[in-house]
């Protein structure tokens, strides 16, 4: 996931090569990826070990299990609608709730010194607890099912958003806030046109971290207890020694991570277009 072309460190604004250089870089990356997959394919085929399957076999298994459905269902199979969609739904709703709550709380804490004094130690305690450790607590409170899983995801992923929103809102440039004051911007406009955009770079960094974490929390919460979902399929694979299914789930999680990250990067680029622009100072 970290080698994703759209978000890899080599394409950050400072080190971006010329257009021609970029094409070569992209080709080189694809080449490395292709070589790795080819090596994996050749190695596993040669070894013939039943626990390590060749990637082509995994990919075709994934295709037939989840993406071989009728066009009317967007090519999703019954297995996909029964497991993939519920997992994604829980993950995205948990992430969305955590995002809204985290930004709202974070901006409030970041801009109100009194609230910061009261809440900050609580925030540091909350983020210090490893989120998976709380899954048993949610299991206890909600029993097995969607509410438990969503709650675990929310609680697991809210911390990066919260901490980054606090930081971003607190450190909005004093020039921006003083200008807002000088022009008597009403509080609502000050929030939506100055504080939130000013804190947006940090907020986006938090959201991106928590999106990756949401995938982790989705799987962990489903491992802990679920009646459907990708994690549940993984549990099935484990109990029935279905090695092929296990590899397919791993592959699917990898693809999901890449796709989600890429979609987020596209959205972030749009929202933060002003930030990547060169600062003309004279």
């Amino acid at each position: 996931m970290s080698a994703l072309p759209a978000t890899g460190p080599a394409t950050t604004a400072a080190a971006r090569p010329r257009a021609g250089g970029r094409t070569y870089l992209l080709l080189a990356r694809l080449l490395v990826l292709a070589a790795a997959i080819a090596g994996w394919q050749l190695g596993t085929t040669a070894a013939g070990n039943p626990y390590f399957l060749p990637p082509a076999q995994i990919a075709s298994g994934m295709y037939h299990r989840w993406f071989d459905g009728p066009a009317s269902h967007l090519w999703l199979t019954a297995d996909a609608t029964a497991n993939l969609l519920p997992s994604l739904g829980r993950m995205l709703s948990g992430w969305a709730i955590a995002a809204v709550a985290g930004v709202a709380l974070g901006v409030a804490i970041g801009r109100l010194p009194l609230l910061a004094d009261l809440a900050e130690s609580l925030v540091h305690f909350g983020r210090a607890v490893p989120p998976p450790a709380l899954v048993p607590v949610f299991l206890f409170v909600f029993k097995i099912g969607t509410p438990m899983e969503v709650a675990a995801i929310i609680f697991g992923v809210i911390w990066p958003v919260l901490v980054n929103s606090i930081d971003g809102a607190r450190h909005v440039d004093a020039g921006y806030t003083e200008t807002a004051r000088a022009f008597r911007l009403p509080p609502a406009q000050r929030l939506t046109r100055v504080i939130l955009p000013g804190a947006a770079p940090k907020i986006c960094a938090g959201l991106r971290l928590s999106l990756a974490l949401a995938l982790v929390m989705m799987i962990i919460s489903e491992f802990a207890g679920s009646t459907n979902g990708i994690g549940n399929e993984m549990l099935t694979a484990q109990s029935t020694f279905d090695i092929s299914l296990m590899w397919q789930v791993i592959g699917l999680l990898g693809v999901l991570g890449i796709v989600l990250n890429a979609l987020f990067a596209v959205a972030e680029r749009r929202v933060l277009a002003w930030q990547r622009a060169p600062r003309a100072t004279s």
Partner: peptide, 30 residues
């Protein structure tokens, strides 16, 4: 009311996320 300020550092007093027109229109919001 009806006071206007021009600061020295335009890069910190004009909002880069707003268009030029939106920046100029901002005090009218108040």
């Amino acid at each position: 009311d009806r006071l206007a300020v021009v600061f020295q550092d335009y890069s910190r007093s004009l909002y880069p996320w707003l268009s030029v027109a939106a920046n100029v229109a901002l005090p009218l919001l108040a």
